[in-house]
Design a protein around this nucleic acid. Sequence first.
RNA 1: GGGCGGUUAGCUCAGUGGGAGAGCAUCGGCCUUACAAGCCGAGGGUCACAGGUUCAAAUCCUGUACCGCCCACCA
Length: 926
Amino acid sequence: MTRQLDKTYSHKEVEVRWYSRWEKYFRPSDGATHPFSMVIPPPNVTGSLHMGHALNNTLQDILCRYKRMDGCSVLWIPGTDHAGIATQNVVERQLAAQGTDRAQLGREKFIERVWKWRAETGSTILSQLKALGVSCDWSRERFTMDEGLSLAVREAFVRLWRDGLLYRAERLINWCPRCKTALADIEVVHEESSGHLWHIRYPIEGESSEWLVVATTRPETMLGDTAVAVHPEDERYQKFIGRKLRLPIVGRLIPVIADPYVDPEFGTGALKITPGHDFNDFEIGQRHGLDIIGIFDDEAKIRASAFAEAGEWLKRYTGKDRFDARKLVVEDLKEEGLLEKVEPYGLAIGQCYRCHTVIEPYSTPQWFVKIKPLAEPAMQAVRDGRIKIIPEGWANSFFAWMENIKDWCISRQIWWGHQIPAWYCTSCESVHLRRNGGDSTSSEFVISPEAKPIVQLEAPSTCDRCGGTQLFQDPDVLDTWFSSALWPFSTLGWPKETPELKTFYPTAVLVTGFDILFFWVARMMMMGLKLMGDVPFRDVYIHALVRDLEGQKMSKSKGNVIDPLDVMGRYGTDAFRFTLAALSAMGRDVKMAEDRVSGYQNFVNKLWNASRFTFMNLDDQDEPLSLENNSIKQLNLADQWILSRLDYTVDQARKAIDGYRFNDYAHHLYQFTWHEFCDWYLEMSKLSLGGKLGNEPQKTRQVLRTVLEQVLLLLHPIMPFVTEEIWQALNQVDGKSSIMVQPYPKSVAGWRQPEVEVQVTFITEIIRTIRNLRSECNVSPGRPVEIFVVDGDRDAIRREQTLKLLRDQEPTIRSLARVSSVEYAGSKSRPKNAITGVVGSTEIFLPVSEAMNLEEEETRLSKEVGKIQVELARAQKKLANEEFLKKAKPEVIDKEKKKAVELEDKIRTVNLSLKRLQELQSQRKD
RNA sequence: GGGCGGUUAGCUCAGUGGGAGAGCAUCGGCCUUACAAGCCGAGGGUCACAGGUUCAAAUCCUGUACCGCCCACCA
């Protein structure tokens, strides 16, 4: 039975072969002595795989596969997030397309509908993740709305309530008039846009032609103004403080107040105060006891009931949305001659992060988490190193955010999500439960902040205060991020005390993008510490965002989205994964370039072909070398060398992956596999394999097999498919075992031999030099050449060692540099009709051919002399500097001295070659 | 307004105190029996700019310019 691989690697064919056979290895091993656990950042059920997911999950999979091979009991929990607002929006759009809406359906039917949608399409992203090759334990897949996690959410809510960390209050919150729900501060995105600054005259009461001019970007909110504020020390306005202004259009009288918040430099120095629709104004209003007038309803349309002093004007305004109202206000002001001027003005407008509708500050009762008592322990955990943020730079952002954190508004006025486990009694609480009339709002009741909720895990049957049986649940649902915050332990079974929770909490590492550092990571820390009494993860590895070639964030609207599945289909999943790893330098953006993927596809192909070469040469009896401490001195030089380099690579690879330096990991393996193993070792091994070194070819075959196998193991975490395919063929196991569960390479005592590396580097330099000379001499690659070697080392022993090494390695030099004969000349008898190359103290002479362009060569050599002179001068200057000799480290000085000597030698020999060349030139002319 | 990061070869980016690197692209030569998705060779950089610290700076400090990101309630 011989090992065989097809002539070309077909990723499409191979990739479908392995995933289902792997799944049994995705579960943690029994015993779980070295637990290593991670939770996937749950993608939204609405999502499909994008570059961000691909990067995030590739990095996680690399870690998991590495740790699993390295003997850990690995648990990687997958799952999805119910994504409240996003999902509700998707289903609502579907309903709209069918000419209906959620109000017509009613809450219960609507939620049914969402579940149905989720059952149909919610697993799309999971199958896409599988195509990427991720090794999650699918038997433990979770969904933030499944039964267990919903219980965890209620448990968390009840505990926070009992500990006094939850409260209801009516305040100005961020309201999305399209989603018709409150949003947390963090869910508002600020986008620069060009607007206007309107200067409006507010007539002073009792004066016929005097007014105060205010500047505003939102003229429509003037309908809800309850004051105008000026700076207390602003001399221009001293005389107006305390007087009344007549609010244009409405006619309401409002006071001029003094408040230090006002910047006299800005606009006119007079600020209109709308406590009902502006956060600053709200604060100022609180300080001065101003009325709060909510002029809008929940769709941000003018609400008639807001205006006590309704005039004729109100008919035209009622029901108009914010932007229409703005136009009307401006028109009306113009008509009354109260619009002084309009200036263009750039401002950052808050938008809903889900639908990009402009946010309206809106006063409603909401649930809040008292956040400071939770934030402090989380900061402490990062400060004292119980949680390590990698790269460290992000810790600054984390602290900055946590220090300024405000209470978290967690109630949402949507239907898809975890309904808040709070109930109200209609008997004893009736005074606080206003039946909603007039304006359209989504809930049947408006529950005043004074209402006393019954908070518990399950619905109560009777009121524990009055024994009433008419209870109803708070209609609001929780912020999706509330359930996400519990993810590291809710997925392990919390609040039940499961064995998994005991073994795998805290998780080892959380891998995520920085875009959800505050949304998610910080909140997991707070909730984990509060509810579990321990950090949710030891390390947080924050990776870059994937951008397009111009560095732009990929988005559908920009049309610059690259579909990972498309890339995987064209270049192969392994090539794609390798690209992501290679580009993911810490703290940087990843600019996705397709030519990189194509380049790494070539790498996959290279590995494939190196394997084919190996297979061609292996016999069935060729076992790999023992990986125990063993002597490899009996092997030939090339064999010893490749094992030494392999050992170095193993060491570097482990260091890189342990430090989350995925790009270093990829580059070390790329460098070793392609340039050392393929370019040099395979070429060198051909001699030995053919018995041309008078050796036992079997030893080399064993080395070949060993190195290929170790390379496959090292590469497997990044490139699972191709490595499995080759490993299966190499070991002829036909799917009965998997590379996934082989031990990850370890350093082997005795393999690393620096002196062997020095020797082989010398030989490869000699070969390079000869190739270089051939190329300059225009000797065709196929034509063998004769060379002369002179070693000019002044130390006789060293000279003999060098010459012995050259003689020993002569077959290799002859083969790799196409040399027909090597002549060892004495230093006195340097050949005349030749050009020279120098490696250390060794000079290589190649007889010149007619074809050679001597002038080009002369230019090149002169240039080289110049370069060496510059370097030499620098070294000599350093060595002449007393300060340098006094203060520099001894090894640096030694190195510099050695360098100077080498450069002197080199410049002498290059000058000699130059001289010879010039002689040749004059000969040619004759 | 505050904070963070970037500026290194034509392009994309590594490199954080002691001789400027990689991949791709370019140029020249090769179908050498694993691989033309390949092999061999070559060219190419005052490491943004200006100061400073140091025996020594791409690397540390200060400032400037440009680019990017995050946070923020100046209407």
